[in-house]
Every structure is written in structure tokens, then in C-alpha cells.
């Protein structure tokens, strides 16, 4: 592939978009979406670090020589499942805050 370091830059931009959401948007739900975007950008970075020119998916077949790096895929797979857990935890906190104070947004 001749993409160069193109995907690293994309991961950086997505990270900044997510970071902006967490910093500047008032709604708690929007902040949690921002955390999710940041997570995906880190996943994209890890997978593009492990990619390999002309490599195929890491499922062993006879006659295929080059495979992409399977180790980042394992790490990202685990992180994806954990991301659901942390997202649900953050959402339940947001729901509790809304129900106890009637405020779904940060004040001030």
C-alpha cells in the first residue's frame, strides 16, 4: 500500500475531534460520544501501526506468505469490548446525575 503515514494523520485528527467534544460541548451524552470517538481513533492508530504492505488477514492459509500483525488486533478486540462496559458505566452515571438534579448538562 502506498498510503504513507496518511492513516496516522487521520487518527490524530479524529483524536482531536473527540478531545474537542469532551472539552467544549456542554451535554454529558455528547461528551461520552467524544470519548468513544477518541477510543476509535486510538484503535485506528494501533491497527495501522500493525498493518503491512500487501499483507492479508491473519488467518493461516497455505500458500499465503505475508500477514498483517495479529497482536494489535487482539488488543483492540479486547479494548472494544471494554469500551462498551465503560460507555455503559458513564451513561448510567449521566442518567443518575440527570435524575437526581434534573441537569443533563454541565453548568458554568
Amino acid at each position: 500500500m502506498s498510503t504513507g503515514n496518511f492513516l496516522y494523520g487521520v487518527a490524530m485528527l479524529l483524536f482531536l475531534i473527540g478531545f474537542y467534544t469532551v472539552l467544549a460541548r456542554p451535554s454529558l451524552i455528547k461528551k461520552i460520544i467524544g470519548i468513544n470517538i477518541m477510543e476509535t481513533s486510538v484503535f485506528l492508530f494501533l491497527i495501522s501501526v500493525g498493518s503491512r504492505r500487501g499483507g492479508s488477514a491473519p488467518i493461516i492459509l497455505s500458500g499465503v506468505k505475508d500477514y498483517v500483525n495479529p497482536l494489535p488486533q487482539v488488543v483492540v478486540l479486547m479494548a472494544m469490548v471494554i469500551a462498551v462496559g465503560t460507555t455503559a458505566l458513564a451513561l448510567s452515571m449521566a442518567v443518575k446525575i440527570f435524575e437526581s438534579s434534573g441537569a443533563g448538562e454541565r453548568r458554568g
Binding site: 500500500m1 498510503t3 504513507g4 503515514n5 496518511f6 492513516l7 496516522y8 494523520g9 490524530m12 495501522s48 501501526v49 500493525g50 498493518s51 503491512r52 504492505r53 499483507g55 505475508d66 500483525n69 497482536l71 494489535p72
Partner: peptide
């Protein structure tokens, strides 16, 4: 950090 990383997809990268 991004500009100083090695080229993406190189078989000689330390990750591979």
C-alpha cells in the same frame, strides 16, 4: 510524533 514515525506498512518495522 506522527511525522517522526516510520513508514506505515513497512515489513522492516519493529512491530513486525
Amino acid at each position: 510524533a506522527v511525522t517522526s514515525l516510520p513508514r506505515m506498512g513497512d515489513p522492516e518495522n519493529p512491530t513486525n
